[in-house]
Design a protein around this nucleic acid. Structure first.
Lengths: 198, 198
DNA sequence: AAAACTGATTGACTTTGGTTAAGAAAGGAA
DNA sequence: TTCCTTTCTTAACCAAAGTCAATCAGTTTT
């Protein structure tokens, strides 16, 4: 969890932010100056089920896994990799506790920031950025959910091969399986079926 | 599509907005004064796949179905009912076209507003409202997606009975089926299985 | 009333996924 | 290297979902 002054890494965040808002030279410098970059070890846990989230993250390097503990079984529901923000929102009417775990699947480099509190005096430009980023993320999540309702596990695996092929080799298959909504044995069978088809 | 001055109906919108922001008396009056409330007929289509969304909606009365047309088959992915906003976001890096249809399952009363354009001079209070609402919606959608990865169709049907029981009687079952990620015949069997269990 | 249409159910059969249990393969640690 | 742990694969069996086709019930149309 040391502080590192890695310039090319930091530019990734600027690139991400630039998708959502026009940044002046000063903006960029201000952001980079105050950036809190931390190193995490494989296995480090960022938050546990039931804890109240205080931080949000941006992944520069590594992979973070989001999961639930259901009847003693870990159910993986998301992976966050390079260039992705981890938005640990506090739902407005929901209780403020996290409903899942976040843990590092690999050694990670991430920037860490406080969750923006309501009713604080913040640069309106930053609020607009958050609004756009949240809408963008919402749009993407809605489409993923729709895709889920429309496809079977095999189709979802093929989709994953197309959109995030690196995950397949990077992540243990039994984590991937619950991410695809199936058991590890079924994923193994799907993989065999597919190799036979070619 | 007439204009209607239905006061109790309008208060629903205020109630929704109040979840996200403190509204003064003036705010409330300003919002209610300019409200564009329209009536839609059963079967009316709000937007088609490929069209560029210009409006967003808030449902006062009725039910709107969101669906895709996949290989000639309609796949239902969402229902919007009383008190729900229909946020037709334009993803930032995605193309601006809608990827789905929206059509009225019943006669509907909705308020209609333009999608907020970027870089316009807008009350910062309103931006904050949008940010919070989007984050809240995102939080909810992420949890729905996680639930989807974790459960089988029967469990999802039971969950639906708990959370939105009115949908089950209100909506044709073959629409419900694809919403649950299965075929109409399978939903019918699940229902039979469940009645036998009791 | 008869015909047409829409939506739900059922049956027979196939395919796929869950379960349980046993091994095989790969990667680290001693 | 050997041992051990982690991860992946396979098999056998069962339950559930998909497919195709027929039927039924309830509406609406003519």
């Amino acid at each position: 969890m040391d502080q590192t002054p890695d310039i090319p890494t930091r530019n990734e965040l600027i690139k991400y932010l630039s998708k959502y808002i026009n940044l002046t030279e000063e903006d960029t410098n201000a952001i980079l100056k105050d950036l809190d970059i931390r190193l995490y070890k494989k296995g480090d846990i960022l938050i546990k089920e039931g804890e109240i989230p205080e931080l949000c993250y941006f992944v520069f390097k590594g992979c973070v896994r989001q999961y639930f503990n259901l009847d003693g079984e870990e159910k993986t529901t998301e992976f966050y990799t390079e260039g992705q923000p981890i938005s640990v929102f506090r739902g407005t009417n929901v209780n403020k506790k996290s409903s899942f775990f976040l843990s590092c699947l690999e050694d990670c480099v991430m920037s860490v920031g406080p969750i923006v509190p309501e009713n604080t005096d913040i640069d309106p430009k930053f609020i607009t950025l958050c609004k756009t980023a949240a809408e963008d993320e919402l749009c993407r999540t809605q489409e993923t959910l729709a895709m889920y309702r429309l496809t079977n596990p095999e189709e979802r695996y093929l989709e994953l091969m197309k959109t995030k092929p690196e995950l397949i080799t990077r992540v243990p298959q039994y984590y991937l399986a619950s991410y695809l909504g199936i058991k590890a044995e079924s994923l193994s069978r799907i993989r065999r079926r597919l190799t036979k088809k070619t």
